[in-house]
Amino acid sequence: MIEVSGLYKAYGLNQAVRGVSFQAQKGEIVGLIGRNGAGKSTTMNMIAGYISSDEGNVWINDHDILKEPLEAKRHLGYMPEVPPLYSEMTVFKYLEFVCKLMGVEKGRIESHLKGILDEVGLEHMKNRLIGNLSKGYRQRVGIAKALCGDPENIILDEPTSGLDPQQIVEIRKVIQALGKEHTVIISSHILKELADICTRLIIIDRGRVVADDTIEHLISRSDAGRVLELNVKEPVDITKVLRAVEDVTDVTRQSFITGNANYRITQKPGTNRSEAVSRAAAAAGATILLLRPVEYSLEDVFFDLTQRTSLEAGEVR
């Protein structure tokens, strides 16, 4: 179990992380997503005990990373954004060294590593020098490193970065398998990737958590359903008629040379005036070809949430 409470970190005048708090339980794969410089890697580095926080606490299996760092780190496997690899070592020697650092008993190292190498598909590369490996294989060694010592909690910072599509699918399977028995926190820039494997998403923007929920909840609590799309064949512009419908806050129109027009009708949150809109359009003489709520994708949710914090921060785009 990983618990993070009120983390703050500043680099000089730049406040990189501002009060990040969340929990990740056993059996959960939690995705951390945000734009470049949002504070994901800094947060992960603080959880892993590589850097300190200015304020706040991190508990790994109830061990405070500042007060009991050695005990806490024993339960944590971490793969940073740039895998920390020694290019002059072979894959096996490197992982053997990591096992020693993680306190794996000497007699158990070989069998332990065999399982890990099989899991991440590195068995046939174990005697190769890390310096001669491709980026994809280096990334796998990084993931294997995080699994050494069989920690209950695993943090992976952009684990699929630089991998080809085939490798991405394979690594995704590895992470999904890990998620059954471990607590996994994974960061990525690619929303779809996280959406496919994560049970929960944490969206970070400007060092703050702007959303922490399941993907279904994130979509449902967004503007989904608030906007209706209406496609009509119309004799005249019916924008004013639609604006007059109760609870409608905004109407935008796009006309086509075929004589059709497309309207986007925004309603007050929690309301559904599709029937009233339909009646008003018909009464105005328009032939309704399509009326449906606009479906929101995870990308829309992400942009909506991060744009809100930008506006709150006063950034002009």
Partner: peptide
Amino acid sequence: RQHTDQLLYSSSLS
């Protein structure tokens, strides 16, 4: 320089 200190300082060694 090689960021391998991340391995050392996030391990269970002081």
